[in-house]
Design a protein around this nucleic acid. Structure first.
Length: 490
RNA sequence: CGGGGUGUAGCGUAGCCCGGUAUCGCGCCACAUUUGGGAUGUGGAGGCCGCAGGUUCGAAUCCUGCCACCCCGACCA
C-alpha cells in the first residue's frame, strides 16, 4: 500500500480522497466545496477535452462561448427547469466593495444590482434566449453548438471531482427543425459519450434512458451512460437530453418551416464534466495509487535511471535520448526522471501512485546486458527485456494495458450486474453484493420513490438495448414488460 | 438543514480531563556517506496552539461566543 493512502477495503471513501490528494490531482480550496485542480489532474482534463472536441467536430458541432452570468428572470421562464435548479444557484446581488472606514472591506450597499444575476448552473436559458435571435427559418437550422465552460451548483454535499460547487464541463446545445432530428442528435451524442468513456477511460457503461423522476429539469427525455465503481455504486458519466420544444416555448423561439408554417424549435443538450476524472480514479485504481488507462495518462512511460556515478548517468542518458525520440515519433509521452535528489525506490512509488502505465528502469547492469526492466502499473509485474525493439514493445504494451484495464472493469461490471426477482433478494443484494440490479418495475414514479426511500437505490436507467420480457414489479407485483437497472449511486 | 468529528510548524499528530515557557513522526535546509523498491547519520530552521472575549499571578489546557473545514444523511452531474 502506498504511504498515506488508506486501503480501499478499509474505507473506500477515504481511499478515494487520499488518492486524489496524494496523486497530486487536486486539493481543497479555501472555499467550501471548491477544488484546485492541480497540473497533473488538469492535464487529464486537457486530454479528455482534446479527444471529445474532435469527436464533437466530427459530428458537425462548433464551439462558442456564452456568458457566466444569467439574468434571474430567465430562470422563471421554464417552470420545471427553475424547480430543478433554484435551490442550488449562486446569486450576484452587488457589483462593488468598499472600505467601511474601519479597515473592513464590505459590500457597497449603493452598488446593488437592479436585477440579480445568476451564476450559470447550466446554460439552456441564456443560450435559448440567444437562439431566438439566430433562428427565423428552417434554413437557419440546425444549430449545433458546444461550449467548454465552468458552472456553479451550490450542492449541499461535495466530493473532489465527483461533485464540486464549481466544475468544468462541456455543454452542447442544439436546435432542430423536427423532433425526429433532435432525437437522433440526442442519441448520437449519447453514443459519442459511450464510445469515449469505453474506449478512452476504459470504462464499460450501460446506455439508457432516465425515468421521469431522474430526468433533467426541463427535458422530455434524458439519456445517460451509467458506470459501475469498485464499491458497487453507480456513477452517471454523461447525459444527453431531448428537450422537446420546452425551451423554445419558454424563450419564444419560432421558425418558419418548409410548409410555411410557424413552429417552435426542437432542442437537445448534452454534457460531460470533470466528474469523469473522478470516475476514472474510482473505477481502476488500487491501494498503491492511480491506475490510468494509457490513452489518457499524462505520462505514459517513465524512465528511471539507476546509477552510482555521474558517468553512469551520462551513459544511461545517452541511451534514453534515443529511446525517447523513438517513442515520441510514435506519439508516446515519456518522462525521463533523472533527479538525483530522490532514490529509485522513491520514484517507483511516486509513479505508481500517479498511475503511470509503464516504467522503464535502467542501471549499469542493464547497460552492460543491453536490457531494461519494464514494469506494468496495471498488473504490477516486472520483466527484463532487451533494449533492441523496446519502443515497439512499449507501444504494443500500452495498447495491451488499455485493453486489460477495460476488460478488468468489464468483468467487474458483469459480475456485479445481477437479475433479481423479489424485493427481499433486491435488498439482500444491495447489502451483500452491491452493483447493478436488473429488476422488474411497474413503471410508476411512486413505486420508484418508495424503493428509493426504503433502500437508497434508484433506477439508474432503462437500458436502450433492453429486451422485452414479461415480469412482475419487485415491489408491487404489478405487471412489467422489461427490466430496469437499479443501483445505489454517487 | 439535521447528525458526528476536527482545528496545535508545510503535512500528520501528542499534550487538554488534572493550568506552569509545546511532543513526536514525515517533510524542509546544510554536510557526509549512499543509490536495482519509499536511504542513513550529524547538525539546523520552522509555532499569534482556528478567531474573539472571559476566569487566573499564569491559558493550547477552564468558561462563553464565533468561524472554518471534513465525514455521514436529505438535494444533485
Amino acid at each position: 500500500m502506498s504511504k498515506g493512502v488508506v486501503s480501499k477495503e478499509e474505507d473506500y471513501s477515504q481511499w478515494y480522497n487520499d488518492l486524489v490528494i496524494k496523486a497530486d490531482m487536486a486539493e481543497y480550496s479555501p472555499v467550501k466545496g471548491c477544488m484546485i485542480i492541480k497540473p497533473y489532474g488538469y492535464s487529464i482534463w486537457e486530454k479528455m477535452q482534446a479527444v471529445l472536441d474532435v469527436m464533437f467536430k466530427e459530428t458537425g458541432h462548433v464551439n462558442a462561448y456564452f456568458p457566466l452570468f444569467i439574468p434571474k428572470s430567465f430562470f422563471s421562464k421554464e417552470a420545471s427547469h427553475v424547480d430543478g435548479f433554484a435551490k442550488e444557484c449562486a446569486v450576484v446581488t452587488h457589483y462593488r466593495l468598499k472600505n467601511d472606514g474601519e479597515g473592513n472591506i464590505i459590500v457597497d450597499p449603493d452598488a446593488k444590482l437592479e436585477e440579480e444575476l445568476i451564476v450559470r448552473p447550466t446554460s439552456e436559458t441564456i443560450i435559448w434566449n440567444t437562439y431566438k435571435g439566430w433562428i427565423q427559418s428552417y434554413r437557419d437550422l440546425p444549430i449545433l453548438v458546444n461550449q467548454w465552460a465552468n458552472v456553479v451548483r451550490w450542492e449541499m454535499r461535495t466530493r473532489l471531482f465527483l461533485r464540486t460547487t464549481e466544475f468544468l464541463w462541456q455543454e452542447g446545445h442544439t436546435a432542430h427543425a423536427t423532433a425526429d432530428e433532435a432525437i437522433v442528435e440526442t442519441e448520437q451524442m449519447l453514443n459519442v459519450y459511450a464510445d469515449f468513456v469505453e474506449n478512452w477511460l476504459a470504462l464499460p457503461v450501460i446506455r439508457g434512458k432516465k425515468t421521469a423522476n431522474e430526468r433533467f429539469a426541463g427535458a422530455l427525455d434524458t439519456y445517460c451512460i451509467e458506470a459501475l465503481m469498485q464499491d458497487g455504486k453507480a456513477l452517471q458519466a454523461g447525459t444527453s437530453h431531448f428537450l422537446g420544444q420546452n425551451f423554445a416555448k419558454a424563450f419564444d423561439v419560432k421558425f418558419t418551416n418548409r410548409e410555411n408554417k410557424l413552429d417552435y424549435v426542437w432542442a437537445t443538450s448534452w454534457g460531460v464534466s470533470t466528474r469523469l476524472i473522478g470516475a476514472l480514479i474510482m473505477a481502476h485504481s488500487d491501494d498503491a495509487g492511480l491506475v490510468l488507462p494509457p490513452k489518457l495518462a499524462p505520462i505514459q512511460v517513465v524512465v528511471v535511471p539507476i546509477y552510482k556515478h555521474e558517468e553512469e548517468l551520462e551513459n544511461i542518458a545517452a541511451y534514453v535520448k534515443g529511446l525517447t525520440a523513438e517513442l515520441k515519433a510514435k506519439n508516446i509521452s515519456v518522462k525521463f526522471d533523472k533527479r538525483d535528489t530522490h532514490r529509485p525506490g522513491a520514484k517507483f512509488a511516486e509513479y505508481e501512485l500517479k498511475g503511470v502505465p509503464l516504467r522503464v528502469a535502467i542501471g549499469s547492469r542493464d547497460m552492460q546486458n543491453g536490457t531494461v526492466e519494464l514494469a506494468r502499473r496495471d498488473t504490477k509485474t516486472k520483466e527484463t527485456v532487451n533494449q533492441e525493439g523496446l519502443s515497439a514493445k512499449i507501444e504494443a504494451l500500452l495498447e495491451e494495458i488499455q485493453q486489460n484495464i477495460y476488460q478488468k472493469a468489464l468483468k467487474f461490471k458483469t459480475e456485479n450486474t445481477t437479475e433479481v426477482d423479489t424485493y427481499d433478494e433486491f435488498k439482500r443484494m444491495l447489502d451483500e453484493q452491491p452493483g447493478f440490479l436488473s429488476a422488474h418495475w411497474d413503471g410508476s414514479p411512486e413505486t420508484e420513490q418508495q424503493i428509493k426511500d426504503e433502500t437508497k437505490a434508484t433506477i439508474r436507467c432503462i437500458p436502450l438495448d433492453n429486451k422485452l420480457e414479461e415480469g412482475k414489479c419487485i415491489l408491487t407485483g404489478k405487471p412489467s414488460s422489461q427490466r430496469v437497472i437499479f443501483a445505489r449511486a454517487y
